[in-house]
Structures are given as structure tokens and as C-alpha cells.
Design a protein around this nucleic acid. Structure first.
Length: 574
DNA sequence: GCCGTTTTCGGCCCGACTGTTTTCAGTCG
């Protein structure tokens, strides 16, 4: 059975959990957690790397010891060390760590003093009032544990960015209307444009914290107040989204914004940098002794440690510090730089609007071009186009192009990639189009090898232009299909194809690290709405967010090209 | 357990809130 990076990361995370419960050296624990994260972020299959004689200790945070453990896990699927620790401490205890409010120390006490091993054990002990009797616990803690256990069954999921945006924007508007506040801004993963967010971090600057906090906890949508101090509070909204508030003085705005934007990994490194220069960085500013040396703006904070300002989407400790130091930070692509959209549907298949209506909406956005790419016949459910209906559509596009100067309608199709890697329409029909967007809509569960081969074969077709939603995932609803993404990316490079970042908030594939790899390989990325109605062009902002997280610049984005420079890229000669 | 332009040993980010405490540990972000 192949061992993927995520499998190795899971072993390291479990070791870290068990070590924590055993009160091991916290820095040793961190080493395992850092390694787990590094592996999850890595765009290269470690098992393959080892098979080719690569040296895993060259990866950041992987030394001799962890390197040999990686090899062991690749070969055996587990690590002897994990099995040993599972004997020392019941493995089920790691589930207790997932209860908010329970950390290693408390889990340890629950286990040693009360013999609690599982969530069920914990529930009955709490119900019987045995938890409150423990040193360091009390009635409130016990009650809290019971509530958390109950909440677990209803499961607090992460929020997709587009959903969180709706709640965030109205909450921010509400806070902005309070007296005495200056800045109100959403920081955290929201500002970094992550595809999903666990909670919403709001930062407010004001002279006095208390009135803001009071107004915050009184927001009509608040269902539960989780914490409530003078400068900081947390609430859970009726929609189950947790919102954290911090209030700082205006003079600390930049330092606080930097701090609460994260990521945690980015901030750890930034503070180390500050420390190396004899400075101390916290959410109130950058200090030399008691003297504040920066903090009113984010730029001032970065500048004081000798760095240019780093865009929030890059703050993941995935190379942004090295790039900043070398003066190589990318100039990230912006929404306004998109010149058109290369994936949109109409009433002819499963869209809700006519070509004319779609074109009008695109024109209003200032687009230079719009590709109409309805489904092909295989997708019967969506009334996919057969050659006859496709040709009728092409004639209509010719008429509309003649009649409406200013925006060029490109002739395209979203053609199904069939199970054997052939396309749902013959090459000669596809050859009449300006571009061919290929996508998988069936047989999601092929083996990794077969799925990859299938898509590679499709890319080999002479008119194939863009691979749409390359992983097929629906966030939280459908796992990506098993596919060797690095291989797809290299093949796209060799064949001159582009890959899509599908801007639909549920899709957003390519992922950020996939984008980065495409860029490194010189593969162009198309940020497409996959619009099924005139409203869906709004989603492009999320696609751009994902592309920015993937370090993409204007030059890496196919549809940031003018029509004139786009045309030759759509037609392949191979 | 990792790492090194000050280090091969001795560091490894920092502050707020809660609940339990009589001065602070644990957890969280």
C-alpha cells in the first residue's frame, strides 16, 4: 500500500500528541508537529523521493532522526516508536485533546487520577461529578466539558470562505457603526484568503476597549459568549461560526494586524527575526527595551526587521521570508488584472442565462473576452451538446460577435474526459473551436494510476487547452479524486496546456501549493468562474485569492492576457 | 528533535483569559 505524505504526517502528529500527554520536552513535540506540517505542504511525494535515492533530511525541519523515521513509515506504514508510545499511553487519549479546553496536562490528570481513556469515559465521569473533584478542575470546567462533548455530536465544521464572508461583512459593518472605533478589519485566515476558515478574527482599534467589547458581545447574531474581557472576547454566532475580537490602540494597528493575520508559523519566524536584532514583537508594537520602534502600520513592522511588506496570502512560512530577503517577492495577480473568463455555461446546457445575457454581464465587468464552454453530450443530465447543437451555438456566437463589438465571445466547450482518456467529441469538431476545456465528470474512483493516465491521455489530444477543476474535489463534500498532480503539471508543461483554478467557492482547485508548483514548472493557470449564471462572475475574487496564495503573478495567469496575446496560447500546434 | 554569520550546546514566540487559585497553571491563538 502506497504511503502518502499525509499518512506520514498523521503518524508524526499522533506521536506529538502522545509525547505531549507524557509531558515530553515541548520542543521535541514541536519538532514532530513541524515535520508533519512540512510533509503536508510538500508538493513532492516523499516515498517516490526516497525510491529515487533522494535525501529527505534536506527538507526543512527533518534531521537524521525524523529522516530515518520517514523511511521506516514509508517501508512499514508505521513507526516502532509510535507503537511503543501507544503501549505507554492509551492511543484513545489523543481524542480528548481535541476537546477545546483540554490540553495535555488535563488529559494526563484525567487519565492518571480517574482512569479516563475515551470520550465516553470522560462523559460519564463528568456527569457523575467526578471531574470537578480533581485538582485544577472545578464545576465550571466540568460543565464546559459536557457542553463540548454535546457540541461535538453536532460537529463544528470549518466555514467555506464565501460563506464566512457573508457573516463577516455584516458583523464588520455593525462594529464600524460603534462610537469611538477607528479601524475594523477581519484578520486571520480570512485575510489570508484560505479556502476555509475555522473562526473569524476581528481587529478593532479604539481608545478604550470595553465599550467595543460590550457592543461586540451584544451583536444580535451572538448565541453564546465564550470569553469576555476588556480587550478581547470570543463569541459563537447562531450559524455556529466562532468570532474572536481584539481591541488595541490605534498606535498598535499595524503590529496587531500583522499579529492577528498570522499564520502562526509566519509569526513565529518574524518574532525570531526581531529577537535576533534585539527587538521584541508583540501585538502592541515592535520594541527595543521599553521604546516602541514600529507598529502603526504593517509596513513599519516589516521594515524595522529589514523586510519589505509581505502580502497576507503568502504568510505561511513557505518561502516568503527567503523571497522577501532576496527582493524576489512576487507581485501577486489582482482581480482587476483579469481580462476575461475562459469557462462559462449558458441555458443551452445547465446554465441559467442566455449567451447574450452572459456576455452583457461580462462586458459590465470590463472584460475583453468571454469563452462560452457548455457541457458536451456525455453529460446528459446537463443536456450536453452534441456536434449538431454545438454548431448551432457557434453560429449564434458568430452573429453576436458581428453585432456586438467591444467584447469578443470565444467559442469553447467543456468536454468530458471519458473513462479511457478519450474526449466526448471528435478532434475535427473540437478543431473548429477557439479553445477546449477538458474535465472529469464521471468515474471518480479509479485508482491513482488509472486516473492519472486517463487525464494525461486527454491532454495529449491535439486541441486540448485547459484542464478544468483538476482535482474534482468539492470542499467538505467530496474528496479530490486520486491523481498524481505533479505528473499532471509536468505533462501540462510538456504539452503546452493550461490548468484551471476554478473560482467556485466549493471547488477552488488547483490548491495553493498546486498553483505554486504550476508556476515553478512554467505552466499557465486560468482563473475561471465556471459561471452557471450572470451572478457567478462574482466568485472570481475567490479564485484570485487562491491564485495569490499560490504565489501567482499576472504573467502566470492565462486570462490576465489581452485577447491578442491570448489567442496564440489557446491553439496548440502539437 | 532541529539547528547554527553568536552557538555542535543550548537555545527554541508571546500575551490574554479562565478557572482555579490565594499568586498562578493551563489553554489558546
Amino acid at each position: 500500500m502506497p504511503v502518502h505524505n499525509a499518512d506520514i504526517a498523521a503518524v508524526f502528529d499522533e506521536i506529538a500528541d502522545l509525547l505531549e500527554i507524557e509531558s515530553a520536552n515541548p520542543f521535541r513535540v514541536r519538532a514532530y508537529r513541524n515535520a508533519a506540517r512540512a510533509l503536508r505542504d510538500l508538493n513532492q511525494d516523499v516515498a517516490a523521493m526516497i525510491a529515487q535515492g533522494g535525501d529527505v533530511t534536506e527538507l526543512p525541519g527533518i534531521g537524521e532522526d525524523l529522516g530515518s523515521k520517514i523511511k521506516e513509515i514509508v517501508e512499514t506504514g508505521t513507526a516502532a516508536m509510535l507503537e511503543e508510545h501507544r503501549k505507554k499511553v492509551p492511543a484513545t487519549l489523543t481524542n480528548l485533546l481535541k476537546i477545546p479546553g483540554l490540553g495535555p496536562k488535563r488529559v494526563q490528570a484525567l487519565y492518571h487520577k480517574l482512569g479516563i481513556r475515551t470520550l465516553d469515559d470522560l462523559q460519564s465521569a463528568a456527569q457523575n461529578g467526578r471531574v470537578r473533584a480533581l485538582q485544577g478542575f472545578g464545576a465550571k470546567t466540568e460543565q464546559h466539558i459536557l457542553e463540548q462533548l454535546k457540541a461535538r455530536t453536532s460537529e463544528a465544521k470549518r466555514f467555506k470562505l464565501a460563506i464566512a464572508t457573508q457573516y463577516a461583512e455584516s458583523f464588520i459593518a455593525y462594529l464600524k457603526a460603534s462610537a469611538g472605533v477607528e479601524h475594523v478589519v477581519a484578520a486571520g485566515s480570512y485575510r489570508r484568503a484560505k479556502e476555509t476558515i475555522g473562526d473569524l478574527d476581528l481587529l478593532v482599534t479604539a481608545r478604550s476597549g470595553s465599550p467595543v467589547v460590550e457592543r461586540f458581545v451584544s451583536y444580535p447574531e451572538v448565541e453564546e459568549v465564550l470569553a469576555h474581557g476588556t480587550t478581547k472576547a470570543s463569541v459563537r454566532l447562531a450559524c455556529r461560526l466562532q468570532v474572536d475580537l481584539r481591541v488595541v490602540p490605534e498606535a498598535s494597528y499595524g503590529a496587531a494586524l500583522q499579529y492577528f493575520t498570522g499564520s502562526k508559523e509566519h509569526n513565529v519566524l518574524l518574532r525570531q527575526l526581531a529577537q535576533q536584532q534585539g527587538l521584541k514583537l508583540n501585538e502592541y508594537g515592535l520594541f527595543k527595551g521599553d521604546q516602541s520602534v514600529a507598529g502603526t502600520t504593517e509596513e513599519s513592522v516589516y521594515a524595522a526587521v529589514g523586510l519589505p511588506w509581505i502580502p497576507p496570502e503568502l504568510r505561511e512560512n513557505r518561502g516568503e521570508f527567503e523571497a522577501a530577503r532576496a527582493g524576489h517577492l512576487p507581485k501577486l495577480v489582482e482581480l482587476a488584472e483579469l481580462k476575461g473568463d475562459l469557462h462559462a455555461h449558458t441555458k443551452a446546457t445547465d446554465g441559467r442565462n442566455t449567451i447574450k445575457e452572459m456576455v452583457e454581464a461580462a462586458r459590465k465587468r470590463g472584460f475583453e473576452y468571454l469563452a462560452i464552454t457548455d457541457h458536451s453530450r456525455r453529460l446528459a443530465m446537463a443536456h450536453g451538446l452534441d456536434p449538431k447543437r454545438l454548431f448551432e451555438q457557434l453560429e449564434e456566437i458568430d452573429r453576436l460577435n458581428d453585432a456586438s463589438p467591444g467584447l469578443t465571445i470565444l467559442k469553447g466547450i467543456e468536454v468530458d474526459i471519458l473513462e479511457d482518456g478519450s474526449l466526448d467529441l471528435p478532434d475535427e469538431d473540437l478543431g473548429r473551436l477557439d479553445l477546449v476545456v477538458g474535465a472529469v465528470h464521471s468515474h471518480f474512483r479509479l485508482s491513482r494510476e488509472k486516473q492519472t493516465e486517463r487525464i494525461l491521455r486527454a491532454m495529449d489530444r491535439p486541441h486540448f487547452t485547459i484542464l478544468a477543476h483538476p482535482s474534482g474535489r468539492l470542499i467538505d463534500e467530496r474528496e479530490p479524486y486520486e491523481v498524481d498532480m505533479p505528473r499532471l503539471i509536468r505533462h501540462a508543461r510538456d504539452r503546452g496546456c493550461a490548468l484551471e483554478v476554478n473560482a467556485h467557492p466549493l471547488r477552488l482547485d488547483l490548491t495553493d501549493t498546486d498553483c505554486q508548483m504550476a508556476k515553478d514548472e512554467g505552466v499557465l493557470v486560468s482563473i475561471n468562474s465556471d459561471a452557471h449564471s450572470v451572478l457567478d462572475f462574482e466568485n472570481l475574487r475567490y479564485g484570485v485569492g487562491q491564485a495569490r496564495r499560490g504565489w501567482l503573478e499576472m504573467s502566470n495567469v492565462l486570462n490576465a492576457r489581452s485577447l491578442q496575446s491570448l489567442r496564440p496560447l489557446l491553439k496548440r500546434t502539437m
